[in-house]
């Protein structure tokens, strides 16, 4: 079932959502955008580029409490898996593709109870970007500028109104209750097709080579000089892995109340680019050079996750490029590897 909604009704639509969900939406902050919890529809900026942190972080939050315990009786420790109903709204296709991959990764047995609990209480309202958000993107090469699943509703701007694809039962309930959605007519569909055709013209391929072969070429380039070149630049600051919508590495630690009786076990985001990530208790560091760590990040996305889940771990959002102050770019790395292949042929 597909419906439409006039621009002027978006406020009412968000207000309706607010009565059932914590609404997470793109909002402007200091000239950039973030996904934040809102309670005023006016705060929402549907026209945004790429947010600083991806929306998936609302399903996989930092410093999440996993367990509560009491040192007086450790057998009473209890799992904290929270799932308040939340709506992630105006989510771009790249970020939906990322959530789809995170779903696969974290649902793989032994599946992650905390993530899945939150995921099950989350509805996702997609929003079709009308072209590349910004300079650094490779979503088109990745085929992640579009998405076919992973949303409850999906909005496309067709001029004066949005075309809304209703994909799930939860989505249907939202559009039925509001009374501001109209059943999509043939003309709406024609406008949708026109908008999509127009949209497609904006995207460009940025990788010089066949993306299907990337994984293979990278494996051949395991000892390529590019890793040392990029490793020299790398600050090991972890920005790339913190902002990545498909990074899920974490560390676990305990925190005690001041009375030293009760405490919590929490997990915080960790990342393979940080120096101490592979250090064991004896002091040995199994990935001690920045070059090895940079290579691992790229391989994790393009080789290891691809082998395991059938698709690349990179959705092409470009955040890791935008937020690397050392200007390490996966686009440049991929092109370097692709160029080398061409030279050798």
């Amino acid at each position: 079932m597909d419906v439409t909604i006039e621009y002027t009704h978006i406020d009412r639509f968000i207000r309706g959502l607010l009565s059932h969900y914590d609404v997470i939406a793109p909002v402007a902050r200091d000239g950039r955008f973030i996904f934040d919890r809102i309670d005023d529809p006016a705060a929402v900026s549907p026209q945004y580029d790429t947010t600083l942190l991806p929306p998936v972080k609302w399903i996989y939050p930092n410093n999440e409490v996993l367990l509560e315990f009491d040192l007086r009786d450790i057998t009473k420790a209890a799992v904290i898996a929270q799932g308040r109903p939340q709506a992630l709204t105006f989510v771009h296709p790249c970020d939906i593709n990322a959530i789809n991959l995170m779903d696969d990764i974290l649902a793989e047995e032994p599946s992650d109870a905390n993530y899945l609990t939150r995921r099950r209480s989350t509805v996702i309202i997609g929003y079709e970007c009308l072209g590349p958000c910004k300079e650094n993107y490779l979503c088109f090469d990745k085929g992640c500028h579009i998405t076919y699943k992973g949303f409850d509703l999906f909005f496309t701007d067709i001029g004066g109104r949005y075309y809304v694809h209703v994909a799930t039962e939860a989505g249907r309930e939202i559009v039925e209750e509001d009374g501001i959605f109209k059943k999509a007519a043939y003309d709406d569909w024609v406008d949708l097709m026109k908008a999509r055709a127009e949209r497609k013209k904006g995207f460009k391929k940025v990788i010089r080579g066949d993306m299907e072969m990337l994984s293979h070429h990278l494996k051949e380039a395991y000892h390529n000089e590019i890793w040392d070149i990029e490793g020299k630049k790398c600050l090991s600051c972890g920005a790339c892995v913190i902002v990545c919508p498909t990074c899920y590495c974490f560390d676990v630690s305990d925190e005690m109340c001041p009375d030293m009786e009760k405490g919590v076990r929490t997990r915080r985001w960790d990342g393979c680019q940080l120096r101490g990530f592979c250090k064991v208790a004896s002091g040995e560091n199994f990935r001690k050079d920045a070059a090895e760590r940079v290579r691992h990040r790229v391989f994790k996305k393009e080789v290891y996750l691809k082998k395991r889940f059938g698709r690349s771990g990179c959705v092409g959002c470009g955040r890791c490029i935008d937020y690397c102050i050392a200007k390490i770019s996966i686009i440049d790395i991929f092109n370097h590897v692709m160029d080398r292949v061409r030279e050798n042929v």
Binding site: R29, D30, L53, C237, G238, A239, I242, R268, I325
Partner: peptide
């Protein structure tokens, strides 16, 4: 940077 980026700060 890890803590700064985790907060979604602008660099």
């Amino acid at each position: 940077c890890v803590e700064c980026r985790s907060k979604g700060n602008i660099c």
